[in-house]
Amino acid sequence: MTIADRDLHAFVDGELPEARRREVAQWLAERPEVAVRVAAWRSQNEAIRRLFPPASAFRPQPAVRTLPPAEDAIRDSDFRTPARRQRQRSANATAMVMIAAAFAIGAAIVLAREIATAPRLEPAPAVAVATVEPAGVAQRAIAAWRAYANDPTHAVEIAAGDPSLGEWLMKRTGLARTPEMAGARLVGARVTPGADRPAAFLLYETGDRARIALVVEPALGAPPTSASGGEIAARAWRADGFDHALAGPISRARLDSLAETLGR
């Protein structure tokens, strides 16, 4: 079986027919050194998509016509002529009114029958429902700081001086640029669990030996909010398609100023 570089690239981009795809996968399974290269190309694709987030993340959406959240926002329907669009809107509006009318009539009939026949009921006892807010990136940064920041020997997985640090973070978390913090040196980094995907945990040390953690993970859901837990405060923000949280045992004002140096 002959597998050329061209086949490997086509494999990464989903261009191969199923039979050929299986052959290449089998071939790669026997050659881990090539499989690593192929995985790196796939990571490049993912990193590019994260580097340039979908338009909905940075452009205000119109009030009347909203784009789908999916990445492929352009649909065939977008190329309809104005006349066809107008006809479609009219048809949609008519359908909406008809459905609303049907519901209104049905509800009125049911309500009238209920009022006429139902005995008076005592009000139902109130039920207390406890809700638990999901932890945000700020809470995860505080937890990660507590777990790792002051570990004397294994605070980070890869030290700042290691040339493979940037590429490793990019492959694991999609973080294309290792942030620099003015007034603090980078100690190193590790990967920690994020909300949906692995997060980058970058540890910095200030001149007065305070250890500050920056947690960066792909943006998900609502914009993050800051938090504090005991002596640790965390400042959170969203930028460039990632949620960031800066956590450490320093004042909020100082966290703010450090966050500013990160280009917050």
């Binding site: 009347v64 784009l67 492929d72 977008d78 809107r89």
Partner: peptide
Amino acid sequence: GPSPIMVEDPVTSIDPRTGE
């Protein structure tokens, strides 16, 4: 007829191809 609530506001409407 053509519903007034469905008419696009010329100021806020953005071509759907713009984002991508």
